[in-house]
Design a protein around this nucleic acid. Sequence first.
RNA 1: GUGGAUGUAGCUCAGUUGGUUAGAGCGUCGGAUUGUGGUUCCGAAGGUCGCGGGUUCGAGCCCCGUCUUCCACCCCA
Length: 452
Amino acid sequence: MAQKPSIPKGTRDFTPQEMANRNYIFNTIKDVFRLYGFQQIETPAMENLSTLMGKYGDEGDKLLFKILNSGDFMSGLGDEELLGRNSVKLTNKISEKGLRYDLTVPFARFVVQNRDKIAFPFKRYQIQPVWRADRPQKGRYREFYQCDVDVVGSDSLLNELELIQIVDEVYRRLKINVVVKINNRKILSGIAEIIGEAEKITDITVAIDKMDKIGLEKVNEEIASKGISQEAIEKLQPILKLTGTNAEKLNQLKAVLADSEIGMKGISEMETIFAFCETMKVQTQIELDLTLARGLNYYTGAIFEVKALDVQIGSITGGGRYDNLTGVFGMDGVSGVGISFGADRIYDVLNQLNLYPETSVEQTQILFVSFGDRELMYALPWVNALRAKGINAEIYPEPAKMKKQMTYADNKRIPYVAIVGETEMNEQKVMLKDMKTGEQKLSTLEEVMNAF
RNA sequence: GUGGAUGUAGCUCAGUUGGUUAGAGCGUCGGAUUGUGGUUCCGAAGGUCGCGGGUUCGAGCCCCGUCUUCCACCCCA
């Protein structure tokens, strides 16, 4: 055999069965998005590197897939650049496009560029693949889909509420038990301020984000290694060990953060959001989790993360409020809040819990089986008539052996087969066979239609 | 980017301290059944054992390199 074909590391093919399952997820999510008034947009797979670079931190820049310039991209280079072996510098010369890393930054670009065409507040959703040159791992791919919903141009906390309601509704429909973890960057900033390490806020949040994984002690070690004083770490301890209901946690925090204006603002935001959720009777458990930080540092207010309760996997949805994302593209004062459903991880969760609905859609309802060219020509108008009625019908396109045609129907789980031969043609009928019961009966076109 | 495991038929996997012609199940194709599938029985096709080098009389098995996939770290959906 010739060399085996393969696909790039971290990418996947999807079979018809897998696509049916994935579409079930996408359609469920889309339905809920639309229910809340969000409209779909798409942006190109590739963006200018100037749009992408510097938006995700140094790590993110490294994980960008870059696209080589077209044409003779080496011709303009001097020997110095070539011999310098400086990847970063050289990359700037030979690549000016990259694959999108997420949907949020391209969306920000979209808003700035199309501001004349959008009415604010702008509620959009976007379901497209993104690419990261990460090393693949369990639940991590180099190409994966994100389903983003964002609303920009509104500071109202009602938007946060709606996003929580969307999460609530999507996972109810998918029958996945989840917990929504929620936190607020303002509270985290307040904490950093109170312990006197305001400028180290990023280091602190990255460290406490790992609380779940590595535990209190290691978190403290990591914070200490970032050059934060022992005294500050001491002050941090009661906050890291907060317990009780959401309201109780907030009350304890109020005492600690009383002198931090920004911290108190965050607390009051959280109180409002919790109150909204209570009024709207959100079913999903919502938990204030101060150890939730989320790496992306453009978040400025509420941050969310959704975890599946019955499966061990990373977060399946995440997002938050970012006050000035469009600022880097020269459009200030536009606040946004959004979340992203990780379709591929949801897919893994559904697989593990086997939660797909029985009725798989998009399948053929009837197959026409025939024995020769005359029979094929006889059957074609029947197929057409059934299709016109909205019945998924197909015809086995060549006069193969009957066994083979029946096996084909069986493999595709086609519930009905119409057999066409000499006798059927003479009577202007077909032999309609129910593949489940095995019963069959000479039927007219009308009788066939009535079977569905 | 760092560390660990892995790779044998289309798929899932056996393969003894290194020893002759590398096996099974599933799937595919053909037949039993010339117009009837899902069950059964019979048969066939299909492998440069990931790739490259080395050790050896002899390598699927041992050694080195490389790639793939998986796992952990980093980071993240």
